[in-house]
Structure formats: structure tokens, C-alpha cells
Amino acid sequence: MRSFNGQQKQLLVLLTPATLFLSVFFLGPLLIMAVSSFLEPGLYGGVEWSFYPWSYGRVLGWADGFYEEFDIVYLEILLRSAGLALATVAVTLLLCYPVAFWISRMPSRWKSFCIFMIALPFFSSMIIRLYAWILILRDSGFANQILLSLGIIAEPLDLMYSGTAVILGMVYIFVPFMFLPVYSSVENLDPKLIKASQDLGATPFTTFRRVIFPMTLPGVIAGSILVFIPALGNFVVPSMLGGAKVVMIGNLVEQQFLASRNWPFGATLSMIMILFMLLVVSFYLLKVMKKQHAA
């Protein structure tokens, strides 16, 4: 009992800095945001200290109809953002899963090199990298020039300012977040297990379904969550590559704080987005864990 107490004390000491840091820089701001989402917007930004549930009403349907009106567009934007984020998850997963297997079979020198190459974009600014995509995708950009000169198209394609461009940009930005966890689970997969499965009569496809996929699932889950959350809240990519056509929930929040100066409404949208994320992620985790138990 005594040693257990000692251990607890030790744990407390070790956890204190992290706890303090998180409470000051994460829980604090979250609390401020939660409170301000229920306050009245000030005239030139800021908040008035009176209870004001109509910001939520604007999004969810109980606006007072006088100062604030319900508009379904906010929910639509939230869902569209979720769709774009999901598409980003799907594309990054499809890209990273096979590549992870490919790289894990390389000689170790090449492995380190490839992982370095995948992490390399982190060394430069995201804005600059997105500008590079603009140069590629715009009407007179590389993509169109190449297609035109090859005679595949007669007119330049409208590549910029579309959902596809936004997904492309987000996939580009978030690939390392998917790759690293997926790769580590693939790398940890014991090749003997694959041999054992084949030895017992499983075809390559069955081996994938019954051994390889379940064994790498933790990496896939981690990668999906790591991509989904920042993709859902992202506003840089849609504002650069999506223009005015593709507004995501992140852009909306940004506008409320910086342009419309309606802080409580920005906070409301953020809170709804956070709750939505929690819901989606916990639903996903529950579903996956159930499946793992059943297997």
C-alpha cells in the first residue's frame, strides 16, 4: 500500500507540469470560448455580459427571429466540411497504406531516406507550399499548360476554387499525419504472422482481411483521427485554394472573429464544431473497438 502511495506521488510530480500547461493553454481558452458562446455580442467585437442563447439558435433553429435568424446554411457548411475532411482522410489513407508497405520492405538505408522525404515539406511554410499549388492549378498553371501542350484538352480546365482543389491541398498538407502512424503499425507487423496465415491455407486476400488489416488497424485509426480533426477545422487551405466558392466551417469561424466581429457567434460555431468532432471520433472509436472485440 505504502509503495503504491509512493508511486502515486511520483506520478503526481511527473504529471504536474503537463497538467498545468494543459489547463492554462488548453482548458482555459476552451472555457473562455464556452462562456463567450453564451454571451451577447458587443457592438465592435468583444462581449456584453448577459446571457444570450440566440447564437446557438442561429445554427440550431431557436433564434429569436428579431436580432438573430435561423439559417440552415451553417449546418450545411459544417456537414460539407465534414465531407471534405472525410474525403481527405480517405485519400490520404489510400495513398499511405500501400506506400507504407512498400517502404517497410526497403533496405533500411532507403527506409530512412523515404521517411525523411515524406517529412521534408514540414521544413517549409505551409503558405508557401500552398502558393506552389496555386501556381500549378490556376488557369495558366503548370497542370493546364502540360495538358494543353499535350493536346489532351483544348481549353484550360477550371482546377482552382473547387472542392477538388481543397481536398488536393488538404491531402498534400496532411499526408505525413496519416503516413507516420500507419507506417509504424505496418513496420511492427511480424512477417511471420503473414507466413503463418498463408501456411494455414489463407489466400493473400484472406490474409489481408484476417491478419494484416486487423493488425494495422490501430495505425489506421490514429492516422484517420489525426487527419480528420485538423482537416475539419482547417481554414487556410479552403481560403487559398477554394476561394469564395468553398467555404468551410473554419473559414466561417475566422470570418466571425476577424471580419464580422461577432465573437460569441464565432465561439458558438467553434463549440458546435468541437462537439461534432467529439461525436464523430467517439462513434468511430466505439464502432472499431466493437469490431475488434467481435473478431
Binding site: D190, K192, L193, K195, A196, S197, Q198, D199, L200, G201, A202, T203, P204, T207, V211, P214, M215, Q292, A295
Partner: peptide
């Protein structure tokens, strides 16, 4: 192919499926 051969193997480190 390996999965069609009428032989089975006991591996040195057993290679049991940890998720089953």
C-alpha cells in the same frame, strides 16, 4: 503457392496471431 500446399509449419517463435 504456399497456401495450397498440404503441409503445415510450427514456427520457431510460434507466430500466434496476437489479435485472436
Amino acid at each position: 503457392p504456399a497456401h495450397q500446399r498440404p503441409v503445415n509449419t510450427v514456427f520457431q517463435s510460434y507466430a500466434l496471431f496476437p489479435h485472436l
